[in-house]
């Protein structure tokens, strides 16, 4: 399927609370994600970032508006959009070794054993785990498990990777390595990335586009940036530092607003 843009148009989402009231999580979110871009959604905790990702993934429907690829509305989960979850221990299949996990998508596509193996080899190598193909998730560290999840997604050749704070639960050193490596993987594979984080540094390190969200309830988009930062990106670059403080100010405003309520 060849599409050009992922559109979110006037997306609103209400949840029924346990006490029967209505929680208005998202209001009128409109975004355009170009094919091939690394689009990051940054916002304070609890602002509804994951809800938005779930709507793009097709796990949840929007209350108003919706997501579409070009003009085709998202009606449910599909192999063109693969989610990378933060909770990798539950996202992987613990009874399958690394290779079997990666081969799951190709298997569902009813590919033959030869091609499945080839794909698994390719993507396990891409994430640097070809030597650990026979290991089970419980034998691997959090970072390695996350690599497998990335390989598993790529082996299915989706158009978009939807990433829900994928590195947030990792230790600082592992996280840094994976961020750098993942940006390389993105530029090599040319996949479109829809990335969620509450980490400003991570957002500036990785993205081509950055949307800052307002605090919930009734969260929306505060501002969208195109990030043409000097490469290689580094916090010591002046443009990186300037952008950092600019985004930080926006986030601080939102946190203040949330507290004032």
């Amino acid at each position: 399927m060849s599409w050009r843009v992922l559109r979110l148009e006037g997306v609103g989402k209400d949840f029924t609370r346990a006490d029967g009231g209505v929680a208005e999580v998202l209001r009128d979110v409109t975004l355009t994600v170009e094919r091939g871009s690394f689009f990051t959604l940054l916002g304070p905790s609890g602002c509804g970032k994951s809800t938005l990702l779930n709507i793009v993934a097709g796990f949840e429907g929007a209350t108003t508006g919706g997501a579409s690829l070009d003009d085709k509305p998202v009606a449910g989960p599909g192999t063109d959009r693969t989610v990378i979850f933060q909770d990798v221990s539950n996202a992987l299949f613990p009874w399958m070794n690394a290779r079997e996990n990666v081969e799951f998508g190709p298997k569902m596509a009813r590919l033959g054993a030869g091609e499945r193996k080839e794909r698994a080899d390719t993507y396990l190598r891409l994430v640097g785990l070809d030597a650990d193909a026979g290991k089970f998730p419980f034998e691997l560290s959090g970072g390695m498990k996350q690599r497998i999840q990335i390989a598993r997604a790529l082996a299915n050749d989706p158009d978009i990777l939807l990433m829900d704070e994928p590195f947030a639960a990792l230790d600082a050193i592992t996280k840094k390595h994976l961020q750098v490596e993942f940006r390389k993987i993105w530029s090599e594979t040319g996949k479109t990335i829809f990335y969620i984080t509450h980490d400003i540094f991570e957002a500036l390190l990785l993205s081509t586009h950055l949307a800052v969200m307002t605090a919930g309830p009734k969260a929306g988009i505060k501002e969208v940036f195109q990030l043409d930062l000097a490469e290689p990106r580094s916090p010591s670059n002046p443009d990186f530092a300037a952008m950092y403080s600019r985004v930080e100010t926006l986030i601080d405003e939102e946190v203040q607003r949330m507290r004032a309520r």
Binding site: A57, F59, N90, W95, A153, N156
Partner: peptide
């Protein structure tokens, strides 16, 4: 885990595959 089922859906598993290859295991 709900996300395991969701992961399988993203990877193209249909209802039967989800049951036999994800839920039951």
């Amino acid at each position: 885990p709900q996300i395991r089922v969701r992961a399988a859906m993203c990877l193209g598993a249909g209802r039967w595959d989800i049951f036999a290859r994800v839920v039951l295991p």
